[in-house]
Amino acid sequence: QIFVKTLMGKTITLEVELSDTIDNVKAKIQDKEGIPPDQQRLIFAGKQLEDGRTLSDYNIQKESTLHLVL
C-alpha cells in the first residue's frame, strides 16, 4: 500500500502494486475520492509523476507517501 496526502491534510491509503502506472493510481484515487484523474497531479520527492510511468520507475516503495495537488 501507499499513502496519498491531500493539501487539505487528509491521507488516503491505496492498495497498489509497484508495477501499477500513475494512471492506475489516479483511477484508484477517483474511486475513493471522486476526483477526476485529469484534475489530479501527483508529486513524489518534489517531482510531478507522469501518467504512463509506473510507481517503480520513480523508486516509490510500499508505505511511501505521495502528495496530491489539484
Rank of each mutant, 00 (worst) to 15 (best):
G52R: 08
S56F: 03
I35Q: 03
L70K: 01
T13S: 09
D38M: 04
Q40C: 04
D57S: 13
L55A: 04
T21V: 07
L70D: 15
Q30G: 11
Q30D: 05
K47T: 15
K32Q: 06
M8N: 14
V25W: 01
K47I: 15
K32A: 14
R41G: 06
M8T: 15
Q61S: 11
K28N: 09
K28Y: 06
F44S: 12
K62L: 11
L70A: 15
D38I: 03
K47L: 15
I43T: 15
I22F: 03
V25N: 00
A27H: 08
I29L: 08
F3E: 05
I22N: 02
S19M: 02
N59H: 14
D38N: 03
L18E: 08
I22T: 07
L18G: 02
H67Y: 01
G34F: 04
I35N: 08
L42T: 00
I12K: 05
L18T: 03
P36S: 08
S19D: 01
I60S: 06
V25F: 03
Q61C: 10
L7F: 11
S64F: 10
I2S: 00
Q48W: 15
G34V: 08
E50H: 14
E15K: 10
Q39P: 12
S64Q: 11
D57G: 13
T54S: 11
Q40E: 01
M8G: 14
I22S: 10
T65Q: 12
G52W: 01
V4C: 08
M8Y: 14
E33Y: 01
N24G: 06
K10Y: 04
P36D: 11
Q1K: 13
K5H: 04
G52L: 07
I29M: 10
K26W: 15
K32L: 12
K32D: 14
E50D: 04
E17H: 09
V4K: 00
I43C: 13
D38P: 04
G46W: 01
D31A: 07
E63K: 10
L49T: 13
Q40M: 04
T6D: 14
I2P: 00
A27G: 06
L42E: 01
V69Y: 09
E15Q: 03
Q30C: 05
T6A: 05
S56N: 08
K26Y: 09
K10E: 10
I43L: 13
L49R: 01
D51G: 06
L70N: 15
V69N: 13
E17V: 09
S19Q: 02
N59F: 08
N24I: 08
N24A: 11
Q39G: 07
Q48C: 03
I2V: 02
I60W: 05
H67V: 14
E63N: 10
D31K: 01
G34A: 09
G34Q: 06
E63Q: 08
N59V: 11
T11G: 11
K5M: 13
I43F: 14
K47Q: 14
R41T: 14
G46L: 03
L70I: 04
I12Y: 12
K28F: 10
M8F: 04
K26D: 00
Q48T: 14
G9S: 08
E50F: 06
H67C: 03
S64G: 12
I2L: 06
L7Q: 15
E17L: 07
T13P: 11
M8H: 13
P37K: 14
T6S: 04
Q30V: 11
L55N: 00
I35C: 07
Q39H: 03
E50R: 15
D38R: 02
G46Y: 02
D23A: 03
G9W: 03
E33N: 02
Q1I: 14
N59I: 12
S19T: 10
L42H: 00
V4G: 00
